[in-house]
Design a protein around this nucleic acid. Sequence first.
DNA 1: TCCATAGGTAGGAAATTTCCGACGTATAGT
DNA 2: ACTATACGTCGGAAATTTCCTACCTATGGA
Lengths: 116, 116
Amino acid sequence: MKAETPTDSAAEDRIFAALASPVRRQVLQLLRERQPQPVTELAAHFAIARPSFSEHLRVLREAGLVGEHRVGRQRLYRLQAESLAEVQQWLHPFERFWRDRLTRLGEVLERLDDES
Amino acid sequence: MKAETPTDSAAEDRIFAALASPVRRQVLQLLRERQPQPVTELAAHFAIARPSFSEHLRVLREAGLVGEHRVGRQRLYRLQAESLAEVQQWLHPFERFWRDRLTRLGEVLERLDDES
DNA sequence: TCCATAGGTAGGAAATTTCCGACGTATAGT
DNA sequence: ACTATACGTCGGAAATTTCCTACCTATGGA
């Protein structure tokens, strides 16, 4: 049992802010495909300088989206998917708005209205 | 059939960038609770000036997250949930990382490693 | 011990975002 | 026609983010 607000608002902010960068989203995708990966290997996919990349990793770390794991002189990064689960939880109450047939119908009717 | 890249990268960027602001996320939540809502009513929940709020609405609109609907001198906003569905689609390949028992086990083992 | 490698921090320029007050536009009511 | 209401755009200040070039630290190998 942790001492956390039901949905820690600051943590949520940091997660969504982290996902706002295409570079950081792609890092997560790269880690999805091969699990622990050193910084150099990840950085090879991007045309930005290393300190900039380090900064991106820091943002991902502080959002709890990745974990670090030192081995020798490398730092292996891996996904920390619990933080992404929080995004899904945030998303969940919206699901019915794109799954409901009735909602769809409502949208179509409104769109007809708009076009007049 | 639309002329869109499988996942239009620019659209994805705009959606995630829009979600990065707590104000904008809350607007979506407000719209979830009551569907078409005029600007004044939405703005009443925030301590920012109206032009700033208008700007937030613009970002949401350009991300396709909300739709506008003029009625009289009001502009009614409603959710456009398809854009949120795109977020869920992006999220989907990550799901196994927090659902898999085996992944969980792997994480536990790695964590024991980290603590040494 | 000495050097190379892995990756971070420091400091700062440039771009972007956030926010504001002032002002413009359109519709509704009188 | 005149006024009030509902929102938007404009122009700019302040904060934040992104990216860079140095430079620092730690580990591994000769």
